[in-house]
């Protein structure tokens, strides 16, 4: 599912002034609009802010409700690092997310290229079948998947977290859509020049799809980073798991050690928040282009 058709870069047209109403009316409307947005912004931002602030409060001040901590300390971080191997887990999460992103882009490009370049028997049906995987809730296939991983002897391993994500409907569909709008003349010209299909894909198509690829990469990386359900089924030991499971273990083992919990949560979100700070526009766009999943 994509919202591609729905999305358009916010057109910066200035709303035509309402002639029936005076300037005061407009100003009042704008002010009320700001109030609505500020309230929504506070609702969205405050929990994240509170997580970071709480993570720096010393243990004896954790129940303080001042917006700005009266004293800051790193004790919570020290405690969190001692309680769970958060460094290893962050590294694991990074590895899993990076590999999934690269592999899924690769298989997605290949499959999308097959659809864009050739007509072959059942091509429409296969395309539909790929799209329909979106309709299979993960909970429905989790037991057979779990058994397969167990049979392969991959329980509690990073490989098992990566394998089912070797391909994804979203990557195939988005890339196929992008390739469809690629001018066929260019491909024809390359073929006339004797380029093989493999080279056309990597030297002609892929470079021109940079925008779509980048936006997919952001999306895949963030959603893999945040994935919870599948690691939850497989993880046994913290050392071979991802950071989301670390947070969950933390909650179950020391549920009300709020400071350290907030420190661990901050560490787990830090990479994503950094990506967001740097690539804010692109991140928002890639999520909006591809729907919610």
């Amino acid at each position: 599912m994509t919202t591609d058709a729905l999305y358009a870069p916010a057109r910066s047209h200035v709303a035509p002034r309402n002639r029936a109403r005076g300037k005061a009316g407009i100003r009042w409307n704008t002010a009320a609009g700001h109030v609505v947005m500020v309230v929504l912004s506070i609702i969205c931002l405050f929990p994240v802010y509170w997580m970071i602030v709480s993570s720096f409060r010393p243990a004896n001040a954790i129940f303080e409700t001042t917006l700005w901590p009266s004293a800051a300390s790193l004790d919570n971080y020290v405690h969190a690092l001692k309680a769970i191997p958060i460094g290893t887990m962050l590294l694991n999460t990074f590895l899993v997310s990076a590999i999934v992103t690269v592999v899924q882009l690769f298989t997605g490009l290949l499959a999308a290229y097959a659809f864009a370049r050739w007509r072959f028997p059942f091509d429409k049906a296969i395309y539909t079948l790929i799209a329909l995987t979106w309709l299979v809730p993960f909970q429905v296939v989790m037991i057979p998947n779990y058994r397969l991983v167990a049979d392969l002897g991959l329980l509690d391993s990073l490989a098992a977290l990566i394998l089912p994500h070797f391909a994804g409907a979203l990557a195939v569909l988005m890339l196929a859509q992008a390739m469809r709008s690629f001018p066929t003349e260019v491909i024809e010209a390359a073929r006339m020049d004797g380029a093989k299909s493999w080279r056309i894909l990597w030297e002609v198509m892929a470079p021109n799809l940079r925008g779509t690829i980048a936006s997919l990469a952001i999306l895949l990386f963030i959603s893999t980073w945040n994935e919870y359900f599948w690691p939850l089924l497989l993880s046994r030991t913290p050392e071979s798991s991802v950071v989301q499971i670390g947070i969950q273990m933390f909650i179950t083992s020391e549920g009300t050690a709020w400071g350290p919990l907030m420190a661990a949560s901050t560490l787990a979100s830090l990479p994503i928040l950094l990506i967001y700070v740097v690539l804010q526009r692109q991140v928002i766009q890639s999520f909006m282009k591809s729907g919610i999943r």
């Binding site: 509170w50 909650i251 979100s269």
Partner: peptide, 10 residues
Amino acid sequence: IIAPVVAAAI
């Protein structure tokens, strides 16, 4: 973009 588990913790 906040992970659901982190959101749950917060």
